[in-house]
């Protein structure tokens, strides 16, 4: 079990206008773990995830208090650009740019200043391989990305995230629109990526969280109710609310 803390969240409170989305969140994320985040809809899971790469700030009405530390450094001192290079995100519905497969993956390196064509091409190939998509598309990298299937597009999203060489990968219900086979492929990819990346998986599917994550946190109505080793959370949770959720009494 790795006990090296890579992200520390202290007293995080998030607001969209007058609406409070997160209440006093405190937690630590360990290097190279897969942390699962479960909870019913509107419990703040996505808001929490997006606070880690300041994507919430795209919304005019967002404000927050509290601190988030990345390897000991307060992230408010890091620029948006640099922070988002460290934390890639995969959204719920596969979202690709209407350009070729190659250019989708190459976009990240391009905006971060990589100009050497050979370097970019290597980065693209490595990223597609790590996302388990290379074999399927290596002969047609010029194909417009929207023509890929849903599962392939989602793996493309993983590839483009890997191309910017993040340290953390955030997943926001990545398999919600996918069939079981594509889901399995993505879960396999996550397992392989564990070696080099820290991953945080927000999911509505408790069984997926049980399959994939080592630790798991339960969010309810903006609060982090409980966080512990996954098996422990599911078999003997400390909080009654957690027990109700994982046994399906509400969801």
């Amino acid at each position: 079990m790795v006990d090296d803390v890579i992200i520390k969240v202290v007293n995080l409170n998030s607001y969209f206008g007058p609406l409070q989305a997160l209440k006093n969140i405190n937690l630590e994320i360990h290097r190279n773990e897969i942390l699962g985040i479960i909870g019913p809809a509107n419990s703040g899971k996505t808001t929490f995830l997006r606070a880690l790469n300041r994507l919430n700030n795209l919304n005019d009405t967002y404000s927050q208090s509290g601190e988030i530390f990345f390897e000991g450094q307060d992230i408010s001192g890091i620029s948006d650009s640099a922070l988002r290079k460290k934390t890639g995100i995969i959204f719920a519905l596969p979202q690709v740019l209407p350009v070729s497969i190659y250019n989708n993956v190459a976009y990240g390196p391009k905006v971060h200043g990589v100009t050497n064509k050979k370097t970019v091409s290597e980065i693209v190939e490595n990223a597609l391989k790590k996302a388990y998509l290379w074999d399927e598309v290596k002969d047609r990298l010029d194909l417009p990305a929207p023509r890929l299937s849903g599962g392939q597009q989602q793996r493309l999203c993983i590839a483009r995230t890997l191309a910017i060489e993040p340290e953390i990968i955030l997943y926001d219900e990545p398999c919600s629109g996918l069939d079981p086979i594509s889901t399995a492929k993505i879960e396999d990819a996550m397992e392989q990526l564990k070696e080099n990346y820290t991953q945080i998986l927000v999911t509505n599917n408790t069984k997926q969280a049980a399959r994939v994550s080592e630790r798991c946190g339960f969010f309810l109505m903006g609060e982090l109710v409980e966080i512990s080793e996954t098996t422990a959370l599911f078999t003997h949770p400390k909080d009654q609310r957690t027990d109700d959720y994982v046994t399906g009494r509400f969801g």
Partner: peptide, 21 residues
Amino acid sequence: YSFREISFSLGATRWQTIRYC
């Protein structure tokens, strides 16, 4: 809007996002 979101999430600046996406 997703084009912009993708671009920002990869770490592009606002102008880069406008210019390319």
